[in-house]
Design a protein around this nucleic acid. Structure first.
Length: 414
RNA sequence: GCAGGGAUACUCAAGCGGCCAACGAGGGCUGACUGUAAAUCAGCUGGCAUUUGCCUACGGGGGUUCGAAUCCCUCUCCCUGCACCA
């Protein structure tokens, strides 16, 4: 199967500037930019990263860009109000962290990693206006969606800085074309307008034809919510923010309706394998075959095979296939690392344990959970107000909020 | 610069002196049913305490009042119109 056929089958092509998708089948050099306003990517970024990986695997050369400069200004897209400006030191730290994550994801592959701050820091304002600004038509910029949304009735306004974002991204593309021979930019469809911005610029400056390709945003089919940061619990790639076990559990918990799409978007499994998994899944949905495969694959890509084995072991404890009191010292080390933990005396109020583990964010919320019978201890619904000595087995117990195992924590006696 | 309109909780959006921790919708959390799924139905959705209490909150600051999200002053930001404009 060719690259273009594969991308099409996976539903990764939304808009493109080239007429025939076969254009993708001749390897060239592409780039993809990541926002650096946080110090870790989320699974929202992962979707585009996986597409980058597919191009890479088909012989394309990759230039990955961490947006040290663009994050200083703030991307106006997808947001209905002006962003807070962040200090440069913070952005620089973020860039370093994101570079690290990219290196992990593409370990063993050849790719270039750049930071647009490196070329923007020396660009003068006048120079920029003459070289770049001159080529942008105000009339055309004013018609951009992000501009009309922000400026019309009910809009929250837009600053000149954010308005200029598009030009900055166009300039990036131009620099990458000149210095790295980049001929394609990929990204999520929310970036389409910005990605397009460099295409005419390069045509005018270099008399060259370059392209852009956007992929649909991953959306939860049931709730319609965009994947990534906006959902209450963002799922981060940084193991310090989202432990590999929680990461694994997130994928296990995915809706049936979404599992097929996620297999296509987030894993490198070939078409035949995915189709086989889906048909097996449909035959026996309760076995969650699709989710299990998805979780294993994605966790492996992001955190490595060891993390998968580890997460699967922890899951045995979570689900109760292995009682937690039987875990040996080595296993306990791992459990402690994977789950939120809390040390307590016998007789601690359940509320205190819920808050202490982060399963509830406040005492009030913890009380609500108790009232709603949402507390489980060692897999059983728990009705008492205190964790008594008898509830602990071998000095420990598993506390859970709700019935999904992903929200579990380990409570140990002091 | 002048005039008018606006800023309400995660989002949208009511309220326009006491009955407002604030209608409604979406989102989120939870329960029942299930399969760590969906759909459906139900509850919850500022915090602390917990049996009618307290604190914080309706853009910021100040004031009027027994009492303000609601009235007045002022500042910031947004929108509309006019004026100005290389």
């Amino acid at each position: 199967m060719t690259l273009s056929e594969d991308l099409k089958w996976r539903g990764l092509i939304k808009d493109k500037t080239f007429a025939d998708i076969k254009w993708l089948d001749t390897p060239r050099t592409f780039y993809h930019g990541v926002d650096a306003s946080a110090d870790s990517m989320t699974i929202g970024n992962l979707a585009a990263m996986m597409t980058a990986r597919r191009l890479l695997d088909s012989g394309w050369k990759a230039v990955l860009l961490a947006g040290g400069a663009t994050s200083l200004v703030g991307d106006p897209g997808g947001k209905n109000e002006e962003r807070e400006l962040k200090p440069r030191e913070e952005i620089q730290k973020n860039v370093q962290a994101i570079k690290g994550q990219i290196s992990m994801l593409f370990a063993g592959k050849e790719f270039a990693l750049v930071d647009n701050y490196d070329w923007f820091k020396d660009v003068g304002y006048l120079e920029f206006l003459r070289e770049v600004g001159k080529h942008y038509s105000m009339t055309e910029l004013m018609q951009r969606d992000f501009v009309t949304e922000r400026m019309g009735e009910g809009g929250s306004g837009i600053s000149y800085a954010e308005f200029s974002y598009s030009l900055i991204q166009g300039y990036d593309y131009w620099q990458l074309y000149k210095n790295h021979g980049v001929e394609l930019q990929i990204g999520g469809s929310d970036q389409w307008g910005n990605m397009l911005s460099g295409v005419p610029l390069i045509r005018k400056k270099e008399n060259a034809e370059v392209h852009a390709l956007s992929m649909p945003l991953v959306v939860n089919k049931a709730t319609g919510v965009k994947f990534g940061k906006s959902e209450s619990g963002a799922v981060w790639l940084d193991p310090a923010r989202t432990s590999p076990t929680q990461f694994y559990q997130f994928w296990i918990n995915v809706d049936d309706a979404d599992a097929e799409e996620y297999l296509k978007v987030f894993t490198l499994l070939p078409k035949e394998k995915i189709e086989e998994l889906i048909s097996r899944h449909k035959a026996a949905p309760a076995e969650r075959i699709a989710q299990t495969a998805l979780a294993a694959e994605v966790t492996k890509l992001v955190h490595g095979q060891d993390a998968v084995d580890f997460a699967q072991t922890i899951t045995e404890y979570l689900v109760g296939h292995r009682p937690i009191e039987e875990a040996d010292d080595a296993a306990m080390q791992e459990v402690r690392q994977a789950l939120p933990g809390f040390k307590a005396q016998p007789g601690v109020p359940v509320i205190e344990a819920l808050v202490g583990t982060g399963l509830a964010s406040s005492n009030t919320e913890a009380r609500r959970l108790v009232q709603n019978k949402a507390v489980y201890v060692n897999g059983e619904q728990f009705q008492k107000d205190h964790l008594e000595a008898g509830d602990f087995k071998n000095g420990r117990l598993m506390l859970r909020r709700g019935k999904a195992y992903k929200d579990s924590a380990l409570i140990e006696l002091v």
